[in-house]
Design a protein around this nucleic acid. Structure first.
Lengths: 340, 340
DNA sequence: ATGAAAGCGCTAACAC
DNA sequence: GTGTTAGCGCTTTCAT
């Protein structure tokens, strides 16, 4: 328990603590020979610098914050990537959950920010689009990197994903299979990417002179139940779609579930596709055709950016928003429509 | 950014910093009147004590560690509960991922433990059964609370779940539906609860004079693919089971997927049940019959225990292992076997 | 019941 | 290149 300190390392190495500090922080101006001695001493003593002392002393804190709202496969995937980056870069990940609906949200974020010695935070949808959250963070001087924000792209460094193009690709797939009446389930208004995915869908249709008519585009909230509800509405129509493209996997699950309940066979009677490629998408039968988002990689990049301090730097017009590409994953839930 | 400190609060309140410290830590020996003044000053200044300073000064660190291995719905559920407890008790959750297979696992845990000012850590399966991890933690004097450990129950405070009874209940359900040839898919050897679930299964069968014969009990690794593999083996048998009880939901998904691929209808040709009740269990069609584990509550209790220092205290024989009850969730994946 | 002083382990200035 | 000296913001002695 009496953990060993920098002083003991210094003694063993026969140098001052400052030199030890220099070596450990990879600062210049240390003779190679001394550097080796310090490393050796630190190794022998099994020395680990203490995070709280480091952060108190005003340097980097070695802690990255991860702000999420509700647990979801989406959040879990991102967290995995962030965790990975942290391990590799010698940081730690502090996870905090936020209630965006809370009336005292600003106070809460203020509290977090001023209490904790985070180097910066990673903001996930939907928190990444909350002005209240960003304002509070700005006020506290805590840099943040957003993952796939939907709004105010210039407001911070962020990692983006080609939602529009991805939705377009998915739409093309369905069209090429022969579908002409395709239902689309939107995500939360204001939520990341929701709008862009709809745009991609529209672009795909437009190329064939089709239009996304109202009853075929249904609102949704990115959760299972809203997929069920939207499916109910879509399939109750006099001219039901032969395919439904839900703008995330959870809603696609809702569609599949409801459609089956109504007696539809998938993909024979109805094709279904989603967006995200959460792990479970491959674990159901038939597998869900979807667009894989490189979530872990995006979060990895976000963590790197936080650590590199990119978040603090003024925005470089283009390079500050690295764009990640989605990948089409075709599984069994899509097929040509029944003829006749 | 120049965040306000205890000194400023002390000045505003007209007391010494020590008194502010006393008030904030709810220590005794402060006049009510002074206490009020301090609170008022702190409120006005919007003061937040700084975590790193507090931990460096040797008191509690206000940080709870959460050690996980791979991301999974199981881990996510537990993390949610822990996060909740932390918020309520004014702590923060530091998530760390561990590779149990890594050769330098001990070193890695040592590093974590000595670097970080955690008050204690929450250990999840399968890390909660790793001797290497526990040894390292003990060595560093970091208290830990385990969630549903499978082995060495006396080794630490832990929160338990009635796996055996729960598996028994599930088995009874299947038997009462009329199934007599029931396949069982085990979890990882050595993994939490794996053995206890099998025992519950055996007890259920035994009551009807049945026995869990070898080919009907298949190994598994708690992951999707192993459910598929076990199902393949079970269904290839000359006398295939009419129901399969997988000891977690992920494997149950694997069973459903593979069975469907082989042309089985669920539940008509085959009943399937799982264990955990991960969110997706209710999002597939038919829904998966399963045992709901109160994971979030368990993690909540674990976090509380870490914070309360229960982990540090010597073991109180019984109360130190609170037992949580599972709840049977019957959905559409189970039905009576086809007659004939 | 309250305060003064001494660190916790580290990094940041500045000397040398 | 390397060491010295101050702190960072807080909790702990130990006085009073």
């Amino acid at each position: 328990m009496p953990s060993i300190t920098i002083t003991e390392v210094a003694q063993l190495a026969g140098v001052s603590i400052k030199t030890v500090s220099r070596v450990l922080n990879a600062e210049p101006h240390v003779r190679e020979e001394v550097r080796q001695r310090v490393f050796k001493a630190a190794g022998e003593l099994n020395y680990r610098p203490q995070v709280s002392a480091r952060s108190l002393a005003g340097a980097r804190s070695y802690i990255v914050g991860f702000l999420m709202t509700v647990p979801s496969p989406y959040a879990a995937g991102a967290q995995g990537g962030a965790l990975d980056a942290c391990r590799r870069l010698g940081r730690h990940l502090l996870v905090e959950s936020l209630d965006l609906e809370a009336p005292d949200l600003a106070t809460e974020v203020d509290a977090l920010a001023s209490t904790l010695p985070v180097e910066g935070v990673i903001l996930l949808a939907p928190a990444c689009d909350s002005e209240v959250v960003m304002d509070a963070l700005d006020r506290q001087g805590v840099p943040y990197v957003r993952i796939a924000p939907a709004k105010m792209p210039e407001r911070s460094f962020s990692v983006e994903v080609d939602d529009e193009q991805a939705a377009y690709v998915m739409t093309r797939l369905l069209l090429e299979l022969g579908h002409r009446r395709i239902g689309f389930i939107r995500g939360l208004e204001d939520h990341s990417a929701s709008t862009r995915r709809l745009q991609g869908f529209r672009r795909g249709l437009a190329e064939l002179g089709l239009e996304a008519r109202e009853p075929l585009v249904q609102p949704g909230q990115f959760i299972f139940a809203s997929g069920q509800e939207a499916a109910t509405r879509l399939l109750a129509s006099p001219e039901p779609p032969t395919a439904i493209f839900a703008s995330n996997d959870l809603m696609a699950f809702g569609v599949m579930s409801k459609a089956r309940e109504l007696g539809y066979r998938i993909p024979d009677d109805l094709s279904v596709s989603g967006f995200d490629d959460i792990p479970l998408a491959g674990m159901i039968w038939p597998g869900l055709t979807t667009m894989a988002q490189p979530l872990a990689e995006m979060a990895f990049a976000a963590a790197e950016a936080v650590i590199a301090g990119a978040a603090r730097a003024p925005l470089a017009p283009s390079s500050s928003h690295p764009l990640f590409k989605c990948r089409l994953v075709v599984r069994g839930s899509t097929a040509p429509p029944r003829t006749g």
